[in-house]
Every structure is written in structure tokens, then in C-alpha cells.
Computed example of a mutant assay.
Amino acid sequence: MTGPADTGLRLSPNIADPDGFYAELIALHEGLSREESEALNARLVLVLANHVGDRDVLRAAFSAARNQDTTGG
């Protein structure tokens, strides 16, 4: 299933073991202040955006995140 404007953005669940992923993500933030956690999130976004690389896909992700549309609907 493609996402907004057929950019190839996946909005349906696509992570193997989503609970395990979430636990790892939360553990990554353990012991950090709010400011440190926010900086970590910003760095993570930039690393993943660089990995994606496609500006159209990234713009579609911006839109989906802003609209809280992460279910594909």
C-alpha cells in the first residue's frame, strides 16, 4: 500500500515486533533529561531522513506526521 500522493510512504504497520521496537526506543531515552531526549529524537529524525533520502517521501512523512495520519486512513 502506498501513502500520500503515491510517494511510496508506508503508513500501514511495517515493523516486525513493534512492541520490541517500542521498548528499544523507550530504553534509548532512559536516564536522559527532557532536553537530551528531545535532542536525541531530533538526531534520530535526521539520521532516518538521510537514510530515506527522497524529498517527496520525506514531505509526505511531514504531512502524515503533522496530520497524525499514521494509519494510512
Rank of each mutant, 00 (worst) to 15 (best):
L40D: 14
D69H: 09
V57M: 01
N41Q: 12
G73R: 08
R10H: 06
P18D: 11
R34A: 04
S63K: 08
A60H: 00
V47R: 14
L46F: 00
A23T: 15
V47M: 10
A39H: 07
F62Y: 09
L58G: 02
I26K: 05
T7S: 14
P13N: 11
D19Y: 07
R59L: 12
Y22K: 09
S37N: 13
G3Q: 01
E36S: 07
S12W: 05
P4M: 05
R66K: 10
H29Y: 07
A65M: 13
M1C: 05
I26S: 06
A5R: 11
P4Q: 03
V52G: 04
A27H: 08
L28Q: 14
D6F: 06
T71N: 11
E38P: 03
N14F: 11
G73T: 05
P18M: 10
T70I: 13
N41F: 09
T2A: 01
S63H: 13
D69P: 00
G3N: 06
F62D: 12
E35T: 13
N50A: 15
V47G: 03
T2R: 09
R43V: 06
R34Y: 01
R55F: 03
G31M: 04
H51I: 08
R43T: 10
L9H: 01
I15N: 05
V57H: 02
A42H: 03
A49Y: 07
L25I: 07
A60T: 12
D17K: 05
V47L: 15
I26W: 03
V45Q: 12
N14A: 13
A64G: 12
N41D: 15
A61S: 06
V52E: 14
E24H: 07
A23P: 03
G31W: 07
D17I: 01
L11N: 01
R66W: 14
A27F: 06
V47A: 13
L32I: 02
D54A: 03
I26Y: 05
L44P: 00
T70W: 14
G53F: 00
A16V: 05
A39I: 02
A39F: 00
N14D: 14
Y22C: 05
L44C: 00
Q68F: 13
A64W: 04
E24I: 02
D6S: 11
L32K: 15
D17V: 10
G3W: 05
R59K: 07
R66P: 00
R10M: 11
V45D: 04
I26A: 10
F21C: 07
T70A: 06
G31R: 03
L11I: 09
A61I: 04
P18V: 04
P13D: 13
E38K: 05
A5E: 14
G31E: 11
F62L: 00
A49N: 06
L46A: 12
R66F: 09
F21E: 15
L46C: 06
M1A: 10
R34Q: 04
S37Y: 10
H51Q: 11
A60Y: 09
A42C: 03
L11A: 08
P4Y: 14
E30P: 00
P13K: 11
Q68P: 00
F21Y: 14
P18I: 04
S63D: 15
T2D: 13
L48F: 07
F21N: 09
N41G: 13
D6A: 14
L48D: 03
L48P: 01
V52D: 08
R10E: 15
L48G: 04
F62N: 01
R43W: 01
L32Y: 08
L48Y: 10
R43G: 08
G8T: 01
F21K: 10
P13Y: 15
